[in-house]
Design a protein around this nucleic acid. Sequence first.
DNA 1: TGTACATCAGTGAACGCGCGTTCACTGATGTAC
DNA 2: TGTACATCAGTGAACGCGCGTTCACTGATGTAC
Lengths: 209, 209
Amino acid sequence: MPAGSTVSIVRGDGKMTKAKTARKEMSRERILASAGSLLREKGISGSSVADVMEGAGMTVGGFYAHFPSKRSLVAEALREALRKSRGLLASSLAGKDGAAWVKAMAGGYLSRSHRDNPQSGCPLPATLCEVAREDAQVREALAGEIGDMVDEIASHLEAAGSHDPRSEALATLSTMVGSLTMARALAGTPLSDAVLRACRRHIERSLPG
Amino acid sequence: MPAGSTVSIVRGDGKMTKAKTARKEMSRERILASAGSLLREKGISGSSVADVMEGAGMTVGGFYAHFPSKRSLVAEALREALRKSRGLLASSLAGKDGAAWVKAMAGGYLSRSHRDNPQSGCPLPATLCEVAREDAQVREALAGEIGDMVDEIASHLEAAGSHDPRSEALATLSTMVGSLTMARALAGTPLSDAVLRACRRHIERSLPG
DNA sequence: TGTACATCAGTGAACGCGCGTTCACTGATGTAC
DNA sequence: TGTACATCAGTGAACGCGCGTTCACTGATGTAC
Protein backbone atom coordinates (compact mmCIF):
# COMPACT_ATOMS: atom_id res chain seq x y z
CA MET A 1 0.00 0.00 0.00
CA PRO A 2 1.13 3.60 -0.74
CA ALA A 3 3.02 5.27 2.08
CA GLY A 4 1.97 8.73 3.39
CA SER A 5 -1.78 8.88 3.50
CA THR A 6 -2.23 5.21 4.23
CA VAL A 7 -0.01 5.35 7.31
CA SER A 8 -1.98 8.24 8.75
CA ILE A 9 -5.23 6.39 8.05
CA VAL A 10 -3.89 3.29 9.82
CA ARG A 11 -2.78 5.44 12.74
CA GLY A 12 -6.14 7.13 12.74
CA ASP A 13 -7.47 3.70 13.64
CA GLY A 14 -4.73 2.66 16.08
CA LYS A 15 -5.00 6.11 17.60
CA MET A 16 -2.86 6.60 20.70
CA THR A 17 0.80 6.44 21.56
CA LYS A 18 2.02 4.27 24.42
CA ALA A 19 2.62 7.27 26.67
CA LYS A 20 -0.88 8.60 26.14
CA THR A 21 -2.36 5.16 26.65
CA ALA A 22 -0.50 4.75 29.93
CA ARG A 23 -1.67 8.13 31.20
CA LYS A 24 -5.25 7.36 30.29
CA GLU A 25 -4.96 3.99 31.99
CA MET A 26 -3.84 5.74 35.17
CA SER A 27 -6.90 7.99 35.10
CA ARG A 28 -9.05 4.94 34.60
CA GLU A 29 -7.50 3.30 37.64
CA ARG A 30 -8.13 6.42 39.72
CA ILE A 31 -11.79 6.40 38.64
CA LEU A 32 -12.12 2.72 39.54
CA ALA A 33 -10.48 3.28 42.92
CA SER A 34 -12.72 6.25 43.68
CA ALA A 35 -15.80 4.26 42.63
CA GLY A 36 -14.66 1.33 44.74
CA SER A 37 -14.52 3.42 47.91
CA LEU A 38 -17.70 5.31 47.22
CA LEU A 39 -19.72 2.21 46.34
CA ARG A 40 -18.69 0.51 49.56
CA GLU A 41 -19.53 3.57 51.59
CA LYS A 42 -22.73 4.81 49.96
CA GLY A 43 -23.96 1.97 47.79
CA ILE A 44 -24.82 2.08 44.11
CA SER A 45 -27.67 4.60 44.11
CA GLY A 46 -25.78 6.74 46.64
CA SER A 47 -22.71 7.06 44.40
CA SER A 48 -23.14 9.61 41.61
CA VAL A 49 -20.89 9.72 38.56
CA ALA A 50 -19.97 13.31 39.46
CA ASP A 51 -18.90 12.30 42.98
CA VAL A 52 -16.86 9.38 41.65
CA MET A 53 -15.05 11.69 39.23
CA GLU A 54 -14.45 14.29 41.93
CA GLY A 55 -12.92 11.54 44.06
CA ALA A 56 -10.62 10.75 41.14
CA GLY A 57 -9.61 14.41 40.87
CA MET A 58 -11.51 15.08 37.65
CA THR A 59 -14.79 16.54 36.44
CA VAL A 60 -17.92 14.72 35.25
CA GLY A 61 -17.52 15.19 31.52
CA GLY A 62 -14.38 13.12 31.29
CA PHE A 63 -16.08 10.02 32.57
CA TYR A 64 -17.44 8.82 29.25
CA ALA A 65 -14.00 8.66 27.71
CA HIS A 66 -13.41 5.73 30.07
CA PHE A 67 -16.75 3.98 30.55
CA PRO A 68 -19.87 3.79 28.37
CA SER A 69 -22.22 4.14 31.36
CA LYS A 70 -22.48 4.21 35.15
CA ARG A 71 -23.72 0.64 34.98
CA SER A 72 -20.52 -0.64 33.40
CA LEU A 73 -18.41 1.34 35.88
CA VAL A 74 -20.30 -0.26 38.74
CA ALA A 75 -19.80 -3.74 37.29
CA GLU A 76 -16.08 -3.23 36.83
CA ALA A 77 -15.48 -1.34 40.08
CA LEU A 78 -17.24 -4.03 42.10
CA ARG A 79 -15.29 -6.77 40.39
CA GLU A 80 -12.02 -4.99 41.08
CA ALA A 81 -12.97 -4.08 44.64
CA LEU A 82 -13.85 -7.68 45.41
CA ARG A 83 -10.63 -8.94 43.88
CA LYS A 84 -8.49 -6.46 45.77
CA SER A 85 -10.29 -6.99 49.05
CA ARG A 86 -9.74 -10.73 48.64
CA GLY A 87 -6.07 -10.08 47.94
CA LEU A 88 -5.75 -7.99 51.09
CA LEU A 89 -7.44 -10.73 53.06
CA ALA A 90 -5.11 -13.36 51.64
CA SER A 91 -1.99 -11.38 52.54
CA SER A 92 -3.21 -10.66 56.07
CA LEU A 93 -3.76 -14.41 56.54
CA ALA A 94 -0.45 -15.46 55.02
CA GLY A 95 1.09 -18.41 56.83
CA LYS A 96 -2.22 -19.56 58.26
CA ASP A 97 -4.08 -22.59 56.98
CA GLY A 98 -7.13 -24.75 57.56
CA ALA A 99 -9.12 -24.02 60.71
CA ALA A 100 -6.72 -21.30 61.85
CA TRP A 101 -7.15 -19.53 58.51
CA VAL A 102 -10.96 -19.63 58.75
CA LYS A 103 -10.93 -18.51 62.37
CA ALA A 104 -8.60 -15.57 61.65
CA MET A 105 -10.60 -14.60 58.59
CA ALA A 106 -13.88 -14.51 60.51
CA GLY A 107 -12.16 -12.56 63.26
CA GLY A 108 -11.00 -9.89 60.84
CA TYR A 109 -14.20 -9.79 58.84
CA LEU A 110 -16.45 -9.60 61.88
CA SER A 111 -14.46 -6.88 63.62
CA ARG A 112 -15.49 -3.43 64.76
CA SER A 113 -12.92 -1.83 62.49
CA HIS A 114 -14.37 -3.60 59.44
CA ARG A 115 -17.87 -2.56 60.49
CA ASP A 116 -16.80 1.06 60.99
CA ASN A 117 -14.70 1.41 57.81
CA PRO A 118 -16.88 0.19 54.95
CA GLN A 119 -15.00 2.19 52.32
CA SER A 120 -11.93 -0.01 52.56
CA GLY A 121 -13.57 -3.33 53.37
CA CYS A 122 -15.61 -6.01 51.64
CA PRO A 123 -17.97 -4.58 49.00
CA LEU A 124 -20.67 -7.21 49.57
CA PRO A 125 -22.46 -5.94 52.69
CA ALA A 126 -22.85 -2.46 51.26
CA THR A 127 -24.01 -3.38 47.77
CA LEU A 128 -25.50 -6.87 47.73
CA CYS A 129 -29.12 -5.88 48.27
CA GLU A 130 -28.87 -3.30 45.49
CA VAL A 131 -27.13 -5.72 43.16
CA ALA A 132 -30.19 -7.99 43.29
CA ARG A 133 -32.03 -5.26 41.36
CA GLU A 134 -29.26 -4.49 38.86
CA ASP A 135 -28.99 -5.93 35.37
CA ALA A 136 -27.07 -9.01 34.27
CA GLN A 137 -23.79 -7.14 33.67
CA VAL A 138 -23.42 -6.18 37.32
CA ARG A 139 -24.84 -9.43 38.71
CA GLU A 140 -22.52 -11.61 36.64
CA ALA A 141 -19.50 -9.57 37.71
CA LEU A 142 -20.31 -10.41 41.31
CA ALA A 143 -21.29 -14.01 40.74
CA GLY A 144 -17.84 -14.85 39.42
CA GLU A 145 -16.01 -13.18 42.30
CA ILE A 146 -18.26 -14.73 44.91
CA GLY A 147 -17.64 -18.15 43.38
CA ASP A 148 -13.88 -17.64 43.71
CA MET A 149 -14.25 -16.50 47.29
CA VAL A 150 -16.32 -19.55 48.17
CA ASP A 151 -13.71 -21.81 46.56
CA GLU A 152 -11.00 -20.24 48.67
CA ILE A 153 -12.91 -20.65 51.93
CA ALA A 154 -13.88 -24.21 50.94
CA SER A 155 -10.26 -25.20 50.37
CA HIS A 156 -9.37 -24.18 53.92
CA LEU A 157 -12.44 -25.88 55.38
CA GLU A 158 -11.44 -29.02 53.53
CA ALA A 159 -7.94 -28.77 55.00
CA ALA A 160 -9.59 -28.37 58.39
CA GLY A 161 -11.41 -31.67 57.87
CA SER A 162 -14.91 -30.51 56.87
CA HIS A 163 -17.13 -33.23 55.42
CA ASP A 164 -18.93 -30.82 53.11
CA PRO A 165 -16.50 -27.93 52.57
CA ARG A 166 -18.24 -26.17 49.70
CA SER A 167 -21.61 -26.13 51.40
CA GLU A 168 -20.05 -24.98 54.67
CA ALA A 169 -18.10 -22.30 52.80
CA LEU A 170 -21.35 -20.91 51.37
CA ALA A 171 -22.87 -20.88 54.85
CA THR A 172 -19.79 -19.21 56.35
CA LEU A 173 -19.81 -16.46 53.74
CA SER A 174 -23.58 -15.94 54.17
CA THR A 175 -23.16 -15.66 57.93
CA MET A 176 -20.32 -13.16 57.63
CA VAL A 177 -22.08 -10.98 55.06
CA GLY A 178 -25.39 -11.07 56.94
CA SER A 179 -23.72 -10.32 60.23
CA LEU A 180 -21.72 -7.33 59.01
CA THR A 181 -24.76 -5.91 57.20
CA MET A 182 -26.83 -6.22 60.37
CA ALA A 183 -24.05 -4.83 62.55
CA ARG A 184 -23.87 -1.74 60.31
CA ALA A 185 -27.64 -1.27 60.25
CA LEU A 186 -27.68 -1.62 64.03
CA ALA A 187 -24.61 0.56 64.64
CA GLY A 188 -25.03 2.56 67.82
CA THR A 189 -27.19 -0.05 69.54
CA PRO A 190 -25.88 -2.86 71.80
CA LEU A 191 -27.06 -5.43 69.24
CA SER A 192 -24.41 -4.26 66.79
CA ASP A 193 -21.44 -5.56 68.77
CA ALA A 194 -23.50 -8.56 69.88
CA VAL A 195 -24.20 -9.77 66.36
CA LEU A 196 -20.52 -9.60 65.41
CA ARG A 197 -19.46 -11.52 68.50
CA ALA A 198 -22.22 -14.10 68.10
CA CYS A 199 -21.23 -14.87 64.52
CA ARG A 200 -17.52 -15.04 65.29
CA ARG A 201 -18.29 -17.60 67.99
CA HIS A 202 -20.70 -19.49 65.79
CA ILE A 203 -18.20 -19.86 62.95
CA GLU A 204 -15.48 -21.04 65.36
CA ARG A 205 -17.82 -23.59 66.91
CA SER A 206 -18.88 -24.85 63.51
CA LEU A 207 -15.30 -25.72 62.56
CA PRO A 208 -14.61 -29.46 62.48
CA GLY A 209 -13.00 -30.91 65.59
CA MET B 1 -69.60 18.44 81.77
CA PRO B 2 -72.18 20.70 80.05
CA ALA B 3 -73.38 19.37 76.73
CA GLY B 4 -73.54 21.55 73.55
CA SER B 5 -70.88 24.26 73.43
CA THR B 6 -68.18 22.40 75.31
CA VAL B 7 -68.52 19.44 73.03
CA SER B 8 -68.06 21.59 69.92
CA ILE B 9 -65.05 23.35 71.43
CA VAL B 10 -63.52 20.02 72.23
CA ARG B 11 -64.39 18.94 68.72
CA GLY B 12 -62.83 22.10 67.30
CA ASP B 13 -59.59 20.84 68.74
CA GLY B 14 -60.14 17.15 68.04
CA LYS B 15 -61.36 18.23 64.62
CA MET B 16 -62.69 15.13 62.87
CA THR B 17 -65.65 12.92 63.34
CA LYS B 18 -65.18 9.22 63.97
CA ALA B 19 -66.32 8.35 60.45
CA LYS B 20 -63.84 10.71 58.84
CA THR B 21 -61.08 9.55 61.14
CA ALA B 22 -61.81 5.93 60.27
CA ARG B 23 -61.74 6.65 56.53
CA LYS B 24 -58.47 8.51 56.83
CA GLU B 25 -57.05 5.68 58.89
CA MET B 26 -57.95 3.26 56.10
CA SER B 27 -56.10 5.37 53.56
CA ARG B 28 -53.12 5.45 55.85
CA GLU B 29 -53.15 1.68 56.10
CA ARG B 30 -53.30 1.39 52.31
CA ILE B 31 -50.28 3.71 52.00
CA LEU B 32 -48.36 1.67 54.57
CA ALA B 33 -49.24 -1.59 52.82
CA SER B 34 -48.20 -0.22 49.43
CA ALA B 35 -44.95 1.10 50.89
CA GLY B 36 -44.34 -2.24 52.57
CA SER B 37 -44.52 -4.15 49.29
CA LEU B 38 -42.57 -1.60 47.30
CA LEU B 39 -39.78 -1.27 49.87
CA ARG B 40 -39.28 -5.01 49.94
CA GLU B 41 -39.23 -5.22 46.17
CA LYS B 42 -37.26 -2.11 45.20
CA GLY B 43 -35.56 -0.93 48.37
CA ILE B 44 -35.71 2.54 49.89
CA SER B 45 -34.16 4.61 47.12
CA GLY B 46 -36.06 2.59 44.51
CA SER B 47 -39.44 3.39 46.05
CA SER B 48 -40.71 6.86 45.20
CA VAL B 49 -43.49 8.58 47.14
CA ALA B 50 -45.47 8.85 43.89
CA ASP B 51 -45.21 5.10 43.26
CA VAL B 52 -46.20 4.30 46.83
CA MET B 53 -49.28 6.52 46.51
CA GLU B 54 -50.21 5.02 43.16
CA GLY B 55 -49.99 1.59 44.76
CA ALA B 56 -52.41 2.83 47.40
CA GLY B 57 -54.81 4.09 44.71
CA MET B 58 -54.13 7.77 45.29
CA THR B 59 -52.05 10.63 43.90
CA VAL B 60 -48.85 12.14 45.27
CA GLY B 61 -50.27 15.29 46.79
CA GLY B 62 -52.32 13.45 49.39
CA PHE B 63 -49.30 11.85 50.96
CA TYR B 64 -48.40 14.70 53.29
CA ALA B 65 -51.78 14.60 55.01
CA HIS B 66 -50.61 11.24 56.41
CA PHE B 67 -46.84 11.47 56.87
CA PRO B 68 -44.50 14.44 57.38
CA SER B 69 -41.83 12.98 55.06
CA LYS B 70 -40.73 9.94 53.07
CA ARG B 71 -38.28 9.19 55.86
CA SER B 72 -41.02 8.77 58.46
CA LEU B 73 -43.08 6.64 56.06
CA VAL B 74 -40.09 4.36 55.55
CA ALA B 75 -39.54 4.03 59.30
CA GLU B 76 -43.17 3.17 59.97
CA ALA B 77 -43.67 0.95 56.92
CA LEU B 78 -40.56 -1.09 57.76
CA ARG B 79 -41.65 -1.49 61.34
CA GLU B 80 -45.11 -2.65 60.29
CA ALA B 81 -43.77 -4.90 57.53
CA LEU B 82 -41.40 -6.60 59.96
CA ARG B 83 -44.14 -7.05 62.53
CA LYS B 84 -46.57 -8.51 60.01
CA SER B 85 -43.99 -10.74 58.43
CA ARG B 86 -43.13 -12.06 61.88
CA GLY B 87 -46.82 -12.64 62.53
CA LEU B 88 -47.18 -14.61 59.30
CA LEU B 89 -44.15 -16.65 60.22
CA ALA B 90 -45.55 -17.41 63.68
CA SER B 91 -48.88 -18.58 62.30
CA SER B 92 -47.25 -20.80 59.67
CA LEU B 93 -45.20 -22.42 62.44
CA ALA B 94 -48.10 -22.85 64.85
CA GLY B 95 -47.91 -26.10 66.78
CA LYS B 96 -44.18 -26.45 66.26
CA ASP B 97 -41.64 -25.84 68.99
CA GLY B 98 -37.94 -25.98 69.80
CA ALA B 99 -35.72 -27.57 67.15
CA ALA B 100 -38.65 -28.40 64.87
CA TRP B 101 -39.72 -24.75 64.94
CA VAL B 102 -36.23 -23.52 64.02
CA LYS B 103 -35.85 -26.11 61.29
CA ALA B 104 -39.23 -25.29 59.75
CA MET B 105 -38.55 -21.56 59.97
CA ALA B 106 -35.20 -21.85 58.19
CA GLY B 107 -36.84 -24.08 55.58
CA GLY B 108 -39.49 -21.47 54.83
CA TYR B 109 -37.13 -18.51 54.98
CA LEU B 110 -34.48 -20.10 52.80
CA SER B 111 -36.92 -21.28 50.12
CA ARG B 112 -37.07 -20.49 46.43
CA SER B 113 -40.51 -18.97 46.83
CA HIS B 114 -39.25 -16.54 49.49
CA ARG B 115 -36.29 -15.67 47.26
CA ASP B 116 -38.52 -15.08 44.25
CA ASN B 117 -41.26 -13.09 46.03
CA PRO B 118 -39.52 -10.34 47.96
CA GLN B 119 -42.57 -8.09 48.03
CA SER B 120 -44.40 -10.34 50.48
CA GLY B 121 -41.46 -11.67 52.45
CA CYS B 122 -39.01 -10.48 55.08
CA PRO B 123 -38.08 -6.79 54.65
CA LEU B 124 -34.53 -7.26 55.93
CA PRO B 125 -32.69 -8.65 52.89
CA ALA B 126 -34.03 -5.96 50.60
CA THR B 127 -33.46 -2.95 52.84
CA LEU B 128 -30.78 -3.70 55.42
CA CYS B 129 -27.79 -2.35 53.50
CA GLU B 130 -29.67 0.87 52.77
CA VAL B 131 -30.84 1.20 56.35
CA ALA B 132 -27.20 1.42 57.47
CA ARG B 133 -27.07 4.80 55.70
CA GLU B 134 -30.43 6.10 56.94
CA ASP B 135 -30.94 8.35 59.96
CA ALA B 136 -31.72 7.33 63.52
CA GLN B 137 -35.50 7.30 63.03
CA VAL B 138 -35.36 4.46 60.50
CA ARG B 139 -32.51 2.60 62.19
CA GLU B 140 -34.22 2.58 65.59
CA ALA B 141 -37.43 1.30 64.04
CA LEU B 142 -35.54 -1.71 62.76
CA ALA B 143 -33.41 -2.27 65.83
CA GLY B 144 -36.48 -2.82 68.00
CA GLU B 145 -38.07 -5.29 65.61
CA ILE B 146 -34.84 -7.20 65.08
CA GLY B 147 -34.44 -7.49 68.85
CA ASP B 148 -37.92 -9.03 69.12
CA MET B 149 -37.18 -11.44 66.29
CA VAL B 150 -33.95 -12.55 67.95
CA ASP B 151 -35.77 -13.10 71.23
CA GLU B 152 -38.32 -15.30 69.52
CA ILE B 153 -35.69 -17.45 67.80
CA ALA B 154 -33.68 -17.62 71.03
CA SER B 155 -36.67 -18.93 73.00
CA HIS B 156 -37.01 -21.86 70.59
CA LEU B 157 -33.28 -22.55 70.58
CA GLU B 158 -33.39 -22.60 74.35
CA ALA B 159 -36.27 -25.10 74.23
CA ALA B 160 -34.15 -27.12 71.82
CA GLY B 161 -31.38 -27.26 74.42
CA SER B 162 -28.95 -24.63 73.12
CA HIS B 163 -26.25 -23.61 75.60
CA ASP B 164 -26.11 -20.05 74.29
CA PRO B 165 -29.54 -19.42 72.73
CA ARG B 166 -29.32 -15.67 72.26
CA SER B 167 -25.93 -15.77 70.61
CA GLU B 168 -27.01 -18.67 68.39
CA ALA B 169 -30.23 -16.81 67.54
CA LEU B 170 -28.21 -13.83 66.31
CA ALA B 171 -26.04 -16.14 64.21
CA THR B 172 -29.08 -17.94 62.79
CA LEU B 173 -30.73 -14.67 61.78
CA SER B 174 -27.48 -13.38 60.26
CA THR B 175 -27.08 -16.56 58.26
CA MET B 176 -30.64 -16.45 56.97
CA VAL B 177 -30.54 -12.76 56.01
CA GLY B 178 -27.11 -13.09 54.39
CA SER B 179 -28.11 -16.20 52.51
CA LEU B 180 -31.34 -14.80 51.10
CA THR B 181 -29.61 -11.56 50.10
CA MET B 182 -26.89 -13.51 48.29
CA ALA B 183 -29.40 -15.87 46.69
CA ARG B 184 -31.28 -12.88 45.28
CA ALA B 185 -28.13 -11.19 44.03
CA LEU B 186 -27.07 -14.47 42.43
CA ALA B 187 -30.52 -15.31 41.02
CA GLY B 188 -30.16 -17.03 37.68
CA THR B 189 -26.83 -18.65 38.50
CA PRO B 190 -26.38 -22.14 40.02
CA LEU B 191 -24.94 -20.53 43.16
CA SER B 192 -28.33 -19.06 44.02
CA ASP B 193 -30.00 -22.38 44.83
CA ALA B 194 -26.74 -23.67 46.30
CA VAL B 195 -26.46 -20.92 48.91
CA LEU B 196 -30.04 -21.48 50.10
CA ARG B 197 -29.52 -25.23 50.41
CA ALA B 198 -26.15 -24.83 52.11
CA CYS B 199 -27.57 -22.51 54.78
CA ARG B 200 -30.63 -24.66 55.40
CA ARG B 201 -28.32 -27.61 56.03
CA HIS B 202 -25.96 -25.57 58.12
CA ILE B 203 -28.71 -24.31 60.43
CA GLU B 204 -30.11 -27.84 60.85
CA ARG B 205 -26.68 -29.22 61.64
CA SER B 206 -26.04 -26.47 64.17
CA LEU B 207 -29.12 -27.40 66.20
CA PRO B 208 -28.30 -29.05 69.54
CA GLY B 209 -28.49 -32.84 69.62
C1' DT C 1 -86.39 18.36 57.86
C1' DG C 2 -83.88 21.83 55.15
C1' DT C 3 -80.40 25.21 54.28
C1' DA C 4 -76.09 27.73 54.90
C1' DC C 5 -71.64 27.03 56.24
C1' DA C 6 -67.12 24.57 57.84
C1' DT C 7 -63.83 20.95 57.50
C1' DC C 8 -60.27 18.55 55.38
C1' DA C 9 -58.73 14.19 52.59
C1' DG C 10 -57.30 14.02 48.31
C1' DT C 11 -56.12 16.22 43.46
C1' DG C 12 -52.92 17.70 40.15
C1' DA C 13 -49.76 21.08 38.72
C1' DA C 14 -45.73 23.27 40.01
C1' DC C 15 -41.21 24.06 42.69
C1' DG C 16 -36.09 23.44 43.01
C1' DC C 17 -32.70 19.98 42.87
C1' DG C 18 -29.50 16.27 41.68
C1' DC C 19 -29.10 12.75 38.57
C1' DG C 20 -26.92 10.32 34.11
C1' DT C 21 -25.57 11.72 29.86
C1' DT C 22 -24.14 14.84 25.87
C1' DC C 23 -21.40 18.09 23.57
C1' DA C 24 -18.65 22.02 21.88
C1' DC C 25 -14.44 23.26 23.26
C1' DT C 26 -9.37 23.45 25.17
C1' DG C 27 -4.75 22.54 25.57
C1' DA C 28 -1.19 19.27 26.41
C1' DT C 29 1.07 15.83 23.86
C1' DG C 30 2.32 13.77 20.01
C1' DT C 31 3.66 13.16 14.56
C1' DA C 32 5.23 14.67 9.82
C1' DC C 33 8.57 16.54 7.28
C1' DT D 1 16.12 21.08 15.18
C1' DG D 2 11.93 23.69 14.21
C1' DT D 3 7.33 24.39 12.59
C1' DA D 4 2.66 23.17 11.18
C1' DC D 5 -0.75 20.06 12.07
C1' DA D 6 -3.49 16.01 14.36
C1' DT D 7 -5.15 13.66 18.31
C1' DC D 8 -7.88 13.14 22.21
C1' DA D 9 -8.23 13.19 27.59
C1' DG D 10 -10.42 16.16 30.18
C1' DT D 11 -13.46 20.62 30.99
C1' DG D 12 -17.66 22.76 32.13
C1' DA D 13 -22.13 24.03 30.74
C1' DA D 14 -26.28 22.21 29.23
C1' DC D 15 -29.98 18.50 28.32
C1' DG D 16 -34.21 15.99 29.91
C1' DC D 17 -35.90 13.50 33.70
C1' DG D 18 -37.59 11.85 38.11
C1' DC D 19 -37.32 12.94 42.71
C1' DG D 20 -39.38 14.91 47.43
C1' DT D 21 -42.12 18.45 48.66
C1' DT D 22 -45.56 22.44 48.35
C1' DC D 23 -49.83 24.55 47.42
C1' DA D 24 -54.18 26.42 45.58
C1' DC D 25 -58.11 24.11 44.86
C1' DT D 26 -62.25 20.62 44.92
C1' DG D 27 -65.92 18.16 46.56
C1' DA D 28 -67.67 14.83 49.70
C1' DT D 29 -68.97 14.79 54.38
C1' DG D 30 -70.17 16.73 58.29
C1' DT D 31 -72.36 20.57 61.80
C1' DA D 32 -75.38 24.57 63.26
C1' DC D 33 -79.68 26.18 63.76
